[in-house]
Measured scan of single mutants.
Amino acid sequence: RELEAFAERFKQRRIKLGVTQADVGSALANLKIPGVGSLSQSTICRFESLTLSHNNMIALKPILQAWLEEAEGAQREKMNKP
């Protein structure tokens, strides 16, 4: 249940930020998480549509959570600048 809720929230917030699935995939490489490079657009799509295996969903959740927090933080900074 929690994974499904996160996937839905992730998709809504990604769209609100105006970021494509492909952008998310390539931006993950910038997070410098050990062992994590970029991901394909189709992987992000399959995460959002819950068609990845349960284990893959569990593995990707903290990575996508980290990206989302960073992206939303950058958005807030941009909006707070005069």
Score class of each variant (00 low, 15 high):
Phe6Ile: 03
Asn80Pro: 15
Ala22Leu: 06
Lys81Gly: 13
Thr51Glu: 14
Met79Lys: 14
Leu39Asp: 04
Ala29Asp: 05
Ile33Leu: 13
Trp67Met: 02
Ala71Phe: 04
Glu2Trp: 02
Gly73Lys: 09
Ile44Lys: 00
Gln12Ala: 12
Gln21Trp: 06
Glu72Lys: 02
Asn56Asp: 11
Lys78Gln: 09
His54Met: 14
Ser53Ala: 10
Asn30Lys: 15
Leu64Glu: 01
Ala7Asn: 02
Lys81Gln: 10
Val24Ile: 10
Ala74Arg: 11
Ala66Ile: 06
Met79Thr: 11
Lys61Gln: 13
Gly18Pro: 00
Asn56Met: 15
Asn80Glu: 15
Asp23Val: 06
Asn55Gly: 14
Glu70Tyr: 06
Gln41Met: 08
Ser49Glu: 14
Ser38Thr: 10
Arg13Cys: 03
Ala71Val: 13
Phe6Cys: 02
Val36Cys: 05
Ser49Val: 01
Asn55Trp: 10
Ile33Trp: 07
Gly18Asp: 03
Asn30Pro: 14
Asn80Gly: 12
Arg46Asp: 13
Asn55Ala: 13
Trp67Phe: 13
Arg9Ile: 12
Cys45Val: 14
Lys32Ser: 15
Ala5Pro: 02
Ser42Leu: 07
Ser42His: 06
Arg1Pro: 05
Lys61Tyr: 12
Lys78Glu: 14
Ile58Thr: 14
Leu28Cys: 10
Phe10Arg: 00
Arg76Cys: 13
Leu52Thr: 02
Arg46Ser: 11
Arg46Gln: 14
Lys61Phe: 03
Ala29Pro: 05
Pro34Val: 06
Asn80His: 13
Ile33Met: 09
Gly37Glu: 13
Ile44Ser: 01
Ser49Met: 07
Lys16Val: 06
Thr51Lys: 13
Asp23Leu: 04
Gly18Arg: 04
Pro62Leu: 02
Asn30Cys: 03
Leu68Trp: 01
Leu28Ser: 01
Ser42Phe: 05
Lys78Met: 15
Cys45Gly: 10
Gln75Ala: 12
Gln75Val: 10
Asn80Ala: 15
Pro82Phe: 07
Gln21Ser: 08
Glu72Tyr: 06
Ile15Ala: 07
Ser26Pro: 05
Ala5His: 08
Met57Gly: 02
Glu69Pro: 02
Met79Gly: 13
Met57His: 03
Asn80Tyr: 10
Trp67Asn: 01
Ala59Val: 13
Ser49Asn: 15
Leu17Cys: 04
Met79Trp: 11
Ile58Asn: 13
Leu60Phe: 03
Lys78Trp: 12
Arg76Trp: 09
Met57Glu: 01
Lys32His: 15
Lys81Asp: 10
Glu72Ser: 04
Gln12Glu: 13
Arg1Cys: 09
Arg9Leu: 15
Glu8Gln: 11
Ala74Asn: 11
Lys78Gly: 10
Ala22Glu: 14
Ser40Ile: 05
Ser38Trp: 07
Ser49Pro: 00
Pro34Met: 06
Thr51Val: 07
Asp23Met: 11
Val24His: 01
Thr51Phe: 03
Ile33Val: 14
Lys32Gly: 07
Lys11Val: 06
Ala74Val: 12
Ala27Pro: 00
Glu77Val: 12
Ser49Arg: 08
Leu50Ala: 14
Ala74Thr: 11
Asp23Thr: 07
Ala59Leu: 10
Ile33Arg: 05
Ser40Tyr: 04
Ala59Tyr: 08
Ala66His: 12
Arg13Gly: 13
Leu64Lys: 01
Thr20Trp: 00
Leu39Cys: 07
Ala71Arg: 09
Ala71Gly: 03
Thr43Val: 10
Lys78Cys: 07
Ile33Pro: 07
Glu2Arg: 04
Gln12Arg: 06
Lys11Phe: 01
Gln21Thr: 08
Asn30Gln: 13
Ala22Lys: 07
Lys16Met: 14
Asp23Lys: 04
Gln75Glu: 11
Asn56Thr: 10
Ala59Ser: 11
Gly35Trp: 03
Glu4Gln: 10
Arg9His: 12
Lys61Ile: 15
Gln75Trp: 08
Glu69Val: 08
Leu31Glu: 11
Leu68Phe: 02
Asn80Trp: 08
Lys32Glu: 13
Arg14Ala: 00
Cys45Trp: 08
Ile33His: 06
Ala27Gln: 09
Gly73His: 08
Gln65Trp: 06
Ala5Asn: 15
Glu48Lys: 01
Ser49Lys: 09
Thr43Ile: 14
Arg76Ser: 13
Arg46Gly: 10
Gln65Phe: 07
Ser26Arg: 12
Phe10Cys: 00
Glu69His: 08
Ile15Pro: 00
Leu64Cys: 02
Val36Asp: 02
Val36Ile: 13
Arg1Phe: 13
Ile63Met: 06
Pro82Tyr: 15
Asn56Phe: 06
Glu4Trp: 09
Ala71Met: 12
Cys45Thr: 15
Gly37Leu: 07
Phe6Pro: 00
Asn80Asp: 12
Glu48Ala: 00
Leu68Arg: 01
Ile58Arg: 15
His54Asp: 10
Thr20Ser: 07
Ala29Trp: 02
Ser40Asp: 14
Asp23Ile: 02
Met79Tyr: 11
Ile33Asp: 04
Gln65Thr: 09
Gly25Tyr: 09
Gly35Cys: 15
Gln75Pro: 08
Gln65Ser: 11
Phe47His: 00
Glu69Ile: 14
Leu3Cys: 00
Val24Gly: 00
Thr51Ser: 13
Gln12Met: 10
Ile33Glu: 05
Ser53Ile: 05
Leu31Lys: 14
Leu50Ser: 13
Glu4Leu: 06
Ile15Glu: 13
Ser53Glu: 12
Leu60Ala: 03
Ala66Ser: 12
Val24Asn: 02
Lys32Val: 11
Val36Trp: 03
Arg1Gln: 03
Phe47Asn: 00
Glu8Tyr: 11
Asn80Phe: 09
Leu60Trp: 02
Arg1Trp: 06
Met57Pro: 02
Gly18Glu: 03
Ser42Val: 11
Ser40Gly: 09
Asn56Pro: 04
Phe10Trp: 04
Gln65His: 09
Lys61Glu: 11
Arg13Asn: 06
Gly73Pro: 04
Gln41Thr: 09
Pro62Ile: 01
Leu64Gln: 02
Leu28Pro: 01
Ala71Glu: 09
Leu28Asn: 02
Gln12Tyr: 06
Lys32Phe: 14
Ile44Trp: 01
Arg14Thr: 00
Arg13Leu: 06
Glu2Ile: 04
Ile63Glu: 04
Glu70Leu: 05
Met57Ala: 06
Arg1Ser: 10
Leu39Thr: 06
Gly37Pro: 11
Ile58Ser: 11
Ser38Ala: 05
Ile44Asn: 02
Arg76Asn: 13
Asn56Ser: 14
Arg46Ala: 15
Ser38Phe: 15
Ala22Pro: 15
Phe47Thr: 01
Gly18Leu: 01
Glu70Pro: 01
Ser26His: 12
Gly25Gln: 12
Arg46Met: 15
Glu8Arg: 12
Lys81Cys: 15
Glu2Asp: 13
Gln65Asn: 08
Thr43Glu: 05
Gln21His: 12
Ile44Met: 02
Ser49His: 09
Pro34Asn: 06
Ala59Gly: 07
Glu77Met: 13
Gly35Arg: 09
Gly35Asp: 06
Asn55Arg: 14
Leu3Glu: 04
Leu17Asn: 02
Ala5Arg: 12
Glu77Phe: 06
Pro82Thr: 12
Ile33Ser: 04
Ile63Ala: 08
Asn80Leu: 10
Ile58Cys: 07
Ala59Asn: 04
Ala7Leu: 01
Phe47Ala: 00
Leu64Asp: 01
Asn30His: 14
Asn55Leu: 11
Glu69Asn: 11
Ile63Pro: 05
Ser49Cys: 08
Leu52Arg: 00
Glu69Phe: 05
Ala74Ile: 12
Ala74Lys: 11
Ser38Val: 14
Ser42Trp: 05
Asn30Trp: 06
Glu48Gly: 00
Glu2Asn: 13
Arg46Trp: 03
Thr20Ala: 09
Glu77Gln: 11
Lys11Ser: 07
Glu69Ser: 09
Ala7Thr: 06
Lys32Ile: 06
Leu64Ala: 02
His54Gly: 09
Lys16Trp: 05
Gly35Lys: 12
Pro62Lys: 04
Ala29Tyr: 15
Phe6Arg: 00
Pro82Met: 12
Leu60Glu: 02
Gln41Asn: 06
Thr20Leu: 08
Lys61Pro: 00
Val36Asn: 03
Ile15Cys: 09
Glu4Asn: 08
Gly35Ala: 03
Ser38Pro: 07
Phe10Ser: 00
Phe47Met: 02
Pro62Arg: 03
Phe10Gly: 00
Ala74Phe: 10
Leu31Cys: 09
Pro62Gly: 05
Ile58Trp: 07
Ser40His: 06
Ala22Trp: 10
Leu39Gln: 03
Glu70Gly: 09
Leu50Pro: 00
Ala71Asn: 14
Glu8Asn: 15
Val24Thr: 02
Glu70Gln: 11
Glu70Asn: 12
Ser40Glu: 08
Lys81Val: 09
Glu77Tyr: 11
Glu2Tyr: 04
Asn55Val: 09
Thr51Ile: 05
Ala27Thr: 08
Glu2Phe: 04
Gln65Val: 06
